[in-house]
Design a protein around this nucleic acid. Structure first.
Length: 475
RNA sequence: GGCCCCUUCGACUAGUGGUUAGGUCACCACCCUUUCACGGUGGUUGCACGGGUUCGAAUCCCGUAGGGGUCACCA
C-alpha cells in the first residue's frame, strides 16, 4: 500500500515510495492499495487528494483498491474510520496495554525540557501510567481532556526484520509511551497505520527510512493487539537526498512532481530516473520501460544508503526519452505549450519545429523556449555571435545574396543550400562565412538546427524580411 | 545528546574472498560538422580510516571517523 498524507503536493520521495509499492505489487501479482492518511485535521489542504490522484495518473501508477477505486476493506480514507480506531484504542485500554493520560501540553513541554537539561533524551515521564481506575474515572467525569498512550513494556529488546536491512533491534526503554489517540478523538499515525494495515490485510509495508525508528512502536502495537502472526513485512527505503546529503527538501530545489511536469519532464523519464535511485537491476541498462521495471523489480536489491537526487542525469534521461519519441507523440505535448506562449502556427509548422529541435532539447518546454525564432522575428541579436560573424564583408555578401534568395522559386533546403554554396564558391570563400551571418540575422542567436532546414521552415518571405531587418539594424 | 541506519569515481550505481574495480550522467580531448546538439573514440577521477581473519580482502569481523534519520496530541 501507498499511504500518503494529503498535505498539498506530491514529493518526489513519495513518488518513489508509491512507485516501489506499485512495482512490487505488480511484480508479485499482489494488490496495490491507496490509503489516505488524513488524521491531522490541522494539516488538511483543500484539493490535495485530487492533486495526488492526478499525479499518480500522470506517472502511470495504478491502484486496485482505494478511495476512488473501491475494495472490500474500505473506507480507504482514515478520517472516515475514526470509530474503528476509537474501538481498538478502547480495547487496548481495557486490557491494560494502553492508558489515558491527562497531562497538559505545558506539562509535557516542561518535562521534556527538564530531561534535556539533565542530559537525558526527551521523553514522557509516564506520569499518568499508573493512575488508579478511580482516579481515571474521576478525571474523566470532571471533563478533563485526555489522550490514550501505549503502555510500552520496560526492559525488552524489540527486534524485527527489515527486507532491506535485515534484523534491526531497539531497547524498549528508549521508546516513549506513544500517544495513540489524540484528545480530539483522532488517532495518531502509529495507531491508524497499524490498525488499517491489519484490517486491510497488508502484507508488505514499503516506506521511507524516516519510519525506521518508529517501527518498534508498531511492532509493539501488533503484539498488544495479539496480531503478531499477521504482522506485515517491512522494507524501509533509503532516503532521497539534497546535494548536501540532507533529506531532500523544498528549500534546496524543486521536489514536487508537478514542478517537474511544468518544467517539461516526461513522466516516463521521471519514473525511470526515480526508480533507479536506490535500486538497480544490476546490469548496464539505463533506460527502462515501466514493464521492464516491473519485470525486474526486487526489494532485496534496494540499496541501504541514501541517494542524492541529481538533476544532471534526469536531464539526460529526459532528453533521451524525447529523442526516442516520434513527432506525432511529441506534438500533443508541445502544442499546448506553444499555445500558452501565444505562438499561433499551423500543426504542420509546429511538427517541423519539433523535428528540427528534437535532438537539441532536454525538456519539452525547451521546444518553445529555445526556439522562439521559429515563431517570431528576432529583435535582439546575440552579441558573441555578432562579434564573431558580423562585419562589413558579411553585410556586403548578404546584400548580394538577398536577390538570389528572392529569385529562388522552389524554397527547399537543398535548393537554398545550393544557392549559398554556389555563391560562396564564386566568391572564393568558405560557406561558413555566409552561414553564420545568415543564422544570426534570421534567428538572432549563434546556435540551432541545420541552417538550410531552418530557412526552409521559416519560409522565404519571412527569411527575406528578417535579413533585410538585420542589415538595417546591425552595424 | 540518546537511539537507529548508512559509507565504491563529483552524482547514480555494478561488485557478495582472487576483476587491469565495470557501466551511466557530468567533465576533458579528439573525430564528425555551417553553429548548437546528436553520434563515435579515448581519457581524468573512487573502495572513509585503522586494526584484524586469510595464501589473498571493496567484499568477512572489530574499532574509529564522517554522514543521515529519529526522538510531537505531524505524518
Amino acid at each position: 500500500r501507498f499511504a500518503p498524507s494529503p498535505t498539498g503536493y506530491v514529493h518526489v520521495g513519495s513518488l518513489r515510495t508509491a512507485l516501489y509499492n506499485y512495482l512490487f505489487a505488480r511484480h508479485t501479482g499482489g494488490v496495490n492499495i491507496l490509503r489516505i492518511e488524513d488524521t491531522d485535521q490541522t494539516r488538511y489542504v483543500e484539493g490535495a487528494v485530487e492533486n495526488l490522484l492526478r499525479t499518480m495518473e500522470w506517472v502511470g501508477i495504478t491502484f486496485d483498491e482505494g478511495p476512488v477505486h473501491g475494495g472490500d476493506c474500505g473506507p480507504y480514507t482514515q478520517s472516515e474510520r475514526t470509530d474503528i480506531y476509537r474501538k481498538y484504542a478502547d480495547e487496548l485500554v481495557a486490557n491494560g496495554k494502553a492508558y489515558p493520560c491527562f497531562c497538559s501540553a505545558e506539562r509535557l513541554d516542561r518535562v521534556r525540557k527538564e530531561m534535556q537539561a539533565a542530559g537525558q533524551p526527551p521523553m514522557y515521564d509516564r506520569h499518568c501510567r499508573n493512575l488508579s481506575a478511580d482516579e481515571v474515572k474521576a478525571k474523566i467525569d470532571a471533563g478533563e481532556k485526555y489522550v490514550i498512550r501505549l503502555r510500552v513494556p520496560l526492559g525488552e529488546t524489540i527486534t524485527f526484520t527489515d527486507l532491506i536491512r535485515d534484523d534491526v533491534s531497539f531497547e524498549s526503554k528508549t521508546i516513549d509511551d506513544q500517544v495513540l489517540l489524540k484528545s480530539d478523538g483522532f488517532p495518531t499515525y502509529h495507531l491508524a497505520n497499524v490498525v488499517d494495515d491489519k484490517l486491510m490485510k497488508i502484507t508488505h509495508v514499503i516506506r521511507g527510512e524516516e519510519w525506521l525508528s518508529s517501527t518498534p512502536k508498531h511492532v509493539l502495537l501488533y503484539r498488544a493487539f495479539g496480531w503478531e502472526a499477521d504482522m506485515p513485512k517491512f522494507a524501509h527505503l533509503p532516503l532521497l537526498l539534497n546535494p548536501d546529503r540532507s533529506k531532500l527538501s523544498k528549500r534546496q530545489g524543486d521536489v514536487a512532481v508537478e514542478d517537474f511536469k511544468t518544467q517539461g519532464y516526461l513522466p516516463q523519464a521521471l519514473v525511470n530516473f526515480v526508480a533507479l535511485l536506490g535500486w538497480n537491476p544490476s546490469d548496464t541498462q539505463e533506460i527502462y520501460s515501466i514493464e521492464e521495471l516491473i519485470a525486474s523489480f526486487d526489494l532485496e536489491k534496494v540499496n541501504k544508503a541514501g541517494a542524492v537526487f541529481g538533476r544532471e542525469k534526469l536531464d539526460w534521461m529526459n532528453a533521451e526519452y524525447i529523442r526516442k519519441m516520434s513527432v506525432d507523440e511529441l506534438f500533443p505535448i508541445v502544442k499546448p505549450l506553444a499555445d500558452a506562449r501565444g505562438y499561433s502556427v499551423s500543426d504542420e509548422y509546429l511538427k517541423k519545429v519539433i523535428t528540427l529541435m528534437q535532438e537539441r532539447v532536454r525538456t519539452v518546454t525547451d521546444f518553445v523556449d529555445f526556439s522562439s525564432y521559429f515563431f517570431k522575428a528576432p529583435t535582439e541579436f546575440d552579441e558573441k555571435s555578432k562579434a564573431k560573424n558580423w562585419n562589413a564583408d558579411a553585410v556586403e555578401r548578404l546584400t548580394e545574396l538577398l536577390p538570389k534568395f528572392n529569385e529562388l522559386t522552389d524554397w527547399t533546403h537543398t535548393n537554398i543550400e545550393q544557392v549559398v554554396r554556389t555563391y560562396a564558391e564564386a566568391k572564393g570563400i568558405s560557406a561558413g562565412k555566409l552561414i553564420h551571418p545568415i543564422r544570426l540575422s534570421v534567428s538572432g542567436v549563434g546556435m540551432g538546427p541545420s541552417l538550410f532546414e531552418l530557412l526552409e521552415t521559416v519560409g522565404k518571405d519571412e527569411v527575406l524580411k528578417r535579413i533585410e531587418y538585420a542589415l538595417s539594424v546591425l552595424k
